[in-house]
Nucleic acid binder design. Sequence first.
DNA 1: GAATTTACTTCAAAACTTGAAGTAAATTTC
DNA 2: GAAATTTACTTCAAGTTTTGAAGTAAATTC
Lengths: 190, 190
Amino acid sequence: MNHRILYPFADFGDAVVVQPGREAVRNAPRHPESDRDGDDALVTYFELARVMERASRRFSGLLRTELTKLGVDDIGSAQAMVLLAIGDAELSVGELLDRGHYVGSNVSYYLKQLADGDYIDRIASQRDKRSARIRLSEKGKQLCKSLREAAKSYERALSHGEQDRRNLETAFQTLHRLEMVWGSAARYGI
Amino acid sequence: MNHRILYPFADFGDAVVVQPGREAVRNAPRHPESDRDGDDALVTYFELARVMERASRRFSGLLRTELTKLGVDDIGSAQAMVLLAIGDAELSVGELLDRGHYVGSNVSYYLKQLADGDYIDRIASQRDKRSARIRLSEKGKQLCKSLREAAKSYERALSHGEQDRRNLETAFQTLHRLEMVWGSAARYGI
DNA sequence: GAATTTACTTCAAAACTTGAAGTAAATTTC
DNA sequence: GAAATTTACTTCAAGTTTTGAAGTAAATTC
């Protein structure tokens, strides 16, 4: 898998094509440089949102498959994501909330299942008895490890070289930025 | 399933992600150069998946808000996304399925609601009576237009220099690539 | 022309998400 | 120092979305 992201999005099927898509066949590489100012940016945020959705769906699928392979059937991909979000840290629910930008009741729901399945330990904080501290149990760590292990084989399938890594980084940063902007937009209007 | 290789898989958890105590503080992109050889990339795919999830959630939130503002209450953000996915095209359900990598029954469900709300027209194909052709109705187009309109104001909130555009493009390409790899991984194992 | 395949739909059961309300501990206020 | 408020969650009861296993009817293949 070569890839230095040729700029004008060479080879991906429905890649950058924007709404106007005459559907189905869209190989003719439209050229960026031309329509620069009109309504349609090359890649609109809608498209980015859509590709995120699709990719996320795929990722969950993979996770689910992996879980099944590992014989885990008491938690789903969403819970596994929470597990991965916790990582090595020991944190309070609130911190986890921040970390994943989840909704409170949502995380409670996940944590309950994770606790029921013994994937995490909850320790009541000494200083503040309202606040539970959370961390992965041995079982949880093991699962995370297996998942990461499994992920590596996928990673090998695409991350090759400096350029790819940089792209990954860029993607991450960009999404992170979007996340923030969209988040504050939601909170403060505009 | 209990191997007991306790690994100090130290630095995975949240590699690049800022420990987001307060969202405000975002360190400048940490720079790669150093830890290059191990198998932990700076940004792992898990993290990318997580940020995608979060950003998607935010985006749906925005969409939902926008819909509410527009007085639309018979469809949700997911349905709106389908609308946007259809765009200007007239396509069959199967093509739409491809386009969004949705699951069949899922799209059926959405389309039903969209049809009930008169956001789309279904035309039975003449050549193949099994296949329904789908396109936005006037009302649907109108809604998409409004949504895109609204999106523009958000777009303005992100600076729109050349660099940003490139980053957006890179992000898009990267995700698209992931989508494909993860997709085929799901289908053909590994 | 029977069997199979394609292109969807439907249904019911999960899974997930939300918002409002609740609880109990900590903090502030008076 | 007790009442009021706030924080840090959890629970509950709706929703909404997603899945998977049928189903249906038209097109294809044999």
